[in-house]
Simulated assay, not measured.
Amino acid sequence: MITEFTTIDYELGRGAVNQLRIDHDSFKTGFRRLANAVHKYGTKIFVQLHHAGRESNSLLTGGKQLVAPSPVVCAAIGEEPRELATEEVKEIIDKFIAAAYRCKIAGIDGVELHGAHGYLINQFLSPNTNLRTDEYGGSFENRIRFLAEIIKGIKKQCGQDFPVTVRLSVDEFEEGGTDVPLSCEISRYLEKMGVDGLHASAGNYNTMETVIESPLFEEGWRVYLAEELKKEVSIPVITVGNIRDPQFVETILAEGKADFVAIGRGHIADPDWVRKVAEGRENEIRMCISCLHCAYSKGHIECSINVRAGRELEFLEMQTIDEKRRVVIVGGGLGEWKLQKYLGLKGMM
Score class of each variant (00 low, 15 high):
75 A>K: 13
291 C>S: 14
342 Y>F: 15
127 P>M: 08
253 L>F: 04
21 R>P: 00
208 M>K: 08
137 G>Y: 02
284 E>H: 12
41 Y>K: 15
66 L>V: 05
241 G>K: 01
158 C>Q: 03
255 E>F: 08
290 S>R: 15
161 D>P: 00
106 A>E: 02
93 I>V: 06
283 N>W: 12
327 V>A: 11
152 K>S: 13
206 N>A: 10
62 G>S: 08
104 K>L: 10
177 G>K: 04
95 K>L: 06
104 K>R: 14
274 V>E: 14
218 E>Q: 13
65 Q>N: 13
232 E>R: 08
60 L>C: 01
26 S>L: 12
46 F>D: 02
120 L>S: 01
103 C>Y: 11
233 V>N: 10
166 V>Y: 01
130 N>I: 09
102 R>A: 05
312 E>I: 08
235 I>K: 04
249 V>H: 00
211 V>Q: 00
174 E>P: 07
149 E>W: 06
96 F>S: 05
9 D>Y: 07
94 D>Q: 14
169 S>Q: 03
115 G>I: 06
151 I>S: 05
164 V>N: 08
154 I>D: 00
274 V>H: 10
103 C>R: 06
287 M>K: 15
342 Y>A: 10
207 T>D: 07
166 V>T: 03
12 L>R: 07
164 V>T: 09
186 I>K: 01
219 E>N: 12
267 H>M: 09
234 S>N: 11
261 V>G: 05
303 C>F: 11
341 K>P: 13
202 A>F: 00
81 P>C: 03
240 V>E: 02
330 V>T: 13
92 I>F: 02
82 R>N: 10
295 A>G: 10
95 K>P: 03
346 K>T: 15
215 P>Q: 13
28 K>H: 05
279 E>V: 08
271 P>A: 02
37 A>P: 03
4 E>L: 06
131 L>S: 03
148 A>G: 06
260 F>E: 02
97 I>K: 03
136 Y>T: 01
233 V>W: 11
228 E>H: 08
81 P>A: 04
268 I>S: 04
161 D>T: 14
302 E>L: 10
115 G>F: 09
32 R>C: 02
309 A>Q: 01
126 S>F: 02
2 I>G: 02
320 T>G: 15
63 G>N: 06
69 P>R: 03
20 L>Q: 07
333 G>H: 09
